[in-house]
Design a binder for these strands. Structure first.
Lengths: 234, 234
DNA sequence: ACAAAAGTGTTTAGCTTACACCCATGG
DNA sequence: CCATGGGTGTAAGCTAAACACTTTTGT
């Protein structure tokens, strides 16, 4: 093939705006929350929206997603997962844009509250969200579906908890993700039998007089088990 | 925001070439296969590659993927699933391209052999693939990983078999997907207990003198069970 | 009659589920 | 001393796993 034809091959194709949008999950006490933003630009200025940005020519998709996360939460070591593209021709009246949606799991206690204010953002309980622009509602629903599925075979739930957490807290989290109650004894048995938690000597007394022991997720132990082919199931 | 700023918002962003690439799975007797193509254009003309195409301005990502599938196999009702984006800045030396990879499951008996020839394509056993260009090797590995995971909770395996198939055939397929042997009696028990197969009166005698009964996948029964919340597990 | 693949049940072990009482502490 | 949430064990039912012989039929 001649270099002229090659040129035509790549240049004959249409370039398209590529955006990324982030569904940011957090977990507070017993509810799953989403970080939403008041959109600053037209169309739909002033309405609630996911946070997003265009992919720049100098960055890959994961880099763009990390950048957005850092700009909006101040965090740079965030669990981030691509969840698919949204490409309807009419999805954005402003222009033809293909968006690659991502969901992120962040620890509410770590993110910079100040940035939330700067961005006119707000945490909403997952089951009490405002109307969202464009196809952001659909993205949001797909994100929870993916999160649920993923949480079944990988311990990503821990990404939503502080470094030290109690078993009751962990159970509340999984209950929030699966939207159903779990038996306390069975939950404990199962999670402890996986041996991926390190029990600490401290107690957290914010929720009861007796206090609950704090645990820490042991990444190393988990990865060992994973290599040996364990299956993490609720 | 003024319309000038708006203009700047969308126009200030960089447009990027967006491609889709398809990992096309087939199943033959007892091996999982991939349809690969001799690349016609530079760079890498003449080397083996997945089939792909740029997303046109008039089509969505799923539409582009279907188009590619139809052009390369002649099939238009194909099981097709997006599996993620590939966006390294240097991934394609020809130009900066973001590719959204998809995997497809097709029935070897249905696709048009003639098109395979037209495209200088060839079916390769999954575990004996030639070197592939760009990041196509990585895509291929990710595709099988996704297929395996997905096959655990959705009966997508059937997309790889002809409409009528025998239980031994089905078992061979799942063994190929999971790369491990399954017990014949347990497999049968499990699959039949799901009640998603319709037993026919015909036998297929191509593989034995006795012959094996043919079955058909019952989409309706499956969807009913799905609504009631069954879990499809190997 | 025999070779080659299809078909069929039972037993055992492990896992999941359901369930109720005592413990520690701060007020 | 009592109210509140944290912690613990066991029995029953169910699902998964292991395992070997009979059936059919073309040659």
């Amino acid at each position: 093939m001649s270099s002229a034809t090659l040129k035509k091959y790549y240049e004959g194709a249409e370039k398209i705006l590529v955006a990324i949008d982030c569904i940011i999950f957090g977990f507070d006490k017993e509810t799953l929350k989403l970080l939403l933003f008041k959109r600053k630009i037209a169309p739909f200025a002033g309405e609630w929206s996911l946070i997003g940005s265009f992919v720049q020519s100098g960055e890959s998709v994961p880099e763009a997603a990390q950048r957005v996360l850092e700009e909006s939460t101040g965090l740079n070591n965030v669990y981030l997962e691509e969840m698919g593209s949204y490409s309807d021709l009419q999805r954005d009246p402003g222009s033809r844009v293909i968006s690659i949606a991502h969901y992120a799991l962040i620890r509410l206690d770590e993110h910079k509250q100040q940035l939330v204010e700067t961005h006119q953002a707000r945490w909403f309980p997952y089951d009490d969200l405002p109307d969202l622009i464009l196809d952001h509602q659909e993205m949001t629903q797909n994100a929870l579906a993916k999160l649920r599925r993923k949480a079944r075979y990988q311990p990503i739930g821990f990404e939503l908890l502080p470094e030290k957490f109690t078993l009751p807290q962990l159970q509340l989290l999984y209950q929030a993700i699966y939207q159903k109650k779990l038996d306390r004894r069975n939950f404990r048995k199962k999670i402890l039998s996986m041996k991926i938690l390190e029990k600490l000597d401290e107690k957290d007394k914010t929720n009861s007089r007796k206090g609950a022991f704090l645990y820490r997720f042991d990444e190393k132990k988990y990865q060992e088990l994973e290599r040996k082919g364990m299956n993490f199931e609720l």
